[in-house]
Write a protein that binds this DNA or RNA. Structure first.
Lengths: 205, 205
DNA sequence: TTGAAAACTTAACACTGTTAATTAACTTTA
DNA sequence: TAAAGTTAATTAACAGTGTTAAGTTTTCAA
């Protein structure tokens, strides 16, 4: 049984190699520039070999996406130290904005492109890491309500509102729409001000 | 000078024909399915002819985008009848959500894809209709502040917050991310609840 | 009617994702 | 050890993409 195990391990190594190199590629050159042939060339395999390890290109992107979520969750570990729910929610938002602005290519894949979601549907799998992040958000909102820090409302409604706002900020920024509202050099600052404004506004007086 | 004028008119007619058919195509089959060759086939011209009327594909999409903004602005005409700024802002948001959900392909082009913005940069032109919509938004926010209906803050900050939120809602919905937060059949309803929540929350007690 | 200018097309380039058929490599069995 | 079987990887190809250069047809003025 040692041989079949080694073979399995080798297979996993090539899978990882494909994913690693794909990620490098779209961090370097952007999502639209990633092609199956380019990935193949980097790992010195023929393009069709990738299809032995993944169903199609979307599936490759889906797994890249997963690793993006891991990156994001890492940033949020320190949140547990913040006891005040509002302050915790605020810091979570700040982390979200920073992540989006620092890794726009990852963000694009995770939340803007439809490719990874199509793969997800084809695979019948779950949005595992994404769901995890959303659960964390809902729990913070719930916590804030329980402690009477925000006006009571349906948790999903508020969570959706908050998520949509930070996503809106990041995705509009990434797609160069926000500089239609304020000068380019003020975009990042104003994004944070908008987030601050929301948190301040939703905080019960 | 009659002849040169007629020629110019014919040229404009073909331009319009290209744009009309392009728009039909991506409303029918989606943005990603629109190709230069498909457009050309529909209008019974060779693919390369399109390049006599537009610099590239992005430029075609840019002009389609423009017509999307016109569609959107039409929906907002009735807003002028609403005197209460908060109520007007609310209705503007509702219109925005409805537009996005009703014409997801247009919305995609106008606010999600980067192609039209690239064209805009190449052309050195302005985001004319888009700017107009944003001005309208800022004015309403300003109005609400002047009348003491919301807590004073920088107009750009609040406008950005509101726009980002509705954009976030629509774009996450279009890309099937919101059904990770609530069941698919509840998405639209919850989107509206989130908008309601924001407006209620920002309204000065 | 001829010649220039404008409008349009054909052919081609360098890509894209993906599949079927084929070869190379390794494992197991006789 | 040699043959058979299995797995891994490749080559060739298809049908599509945006775009450019060169050639053809049409239109109009002198």
């Amino acid at each position: 049984m040692g041989i079949v195990a080694r073979k399995e391990k080798q297979k996993q190594e090539i899978r990882s190699l494909i994913l690693e190199e794909s990620m490098k590629l779209f961090v370097e050159e952007g999502f639209s520039k990633v092609s199956v042939r380019k990935i193949a060339e980097r790992i010195q395999y023929s393009p069709t070999t990738l299809y032995l390890y993944f169903k199609d290109k979307n599936e490759i992107l889906f797994y890249c996406c997963e690793s993006g979520f891991k990156k994001m969750l890492e940033q949020n570990i320190a949140l547990a130290l913040i006891s005040d729910p509002i302050e915790r929610l605020h810091q979570m938002g700040v982390n979200y904005l920073n992540f989006g602005l620092e890794y726009p290519e990852y963000y694009d894949l995770m939340f803007i492109q439809e490719a990874p979601m199509s793969a997800l549907i084809d695979m019948g799998a779950g949005w595992s890491s994404g769901d995890q992040a959303l659960e964390a958000l809902k729990m913070i909102v719930q916590d804030a309500m329980d402690k009477g820090l925000v006006v009571p409302a349906k948790v999903e409604t508020v969570a959706m509102a908050v998520w949509s706002m930070v996503h809106g900020l990041v995705s509009l920024a990434i797609r160069q729409r926000l500089d239609k509202l304020v000068p380019a050099e003020d975009v990042e600052k104003t994004m944070h001000e908008s987030l601050d404004w929301l948190l301040k506004t939703m905080k019960k007086a």
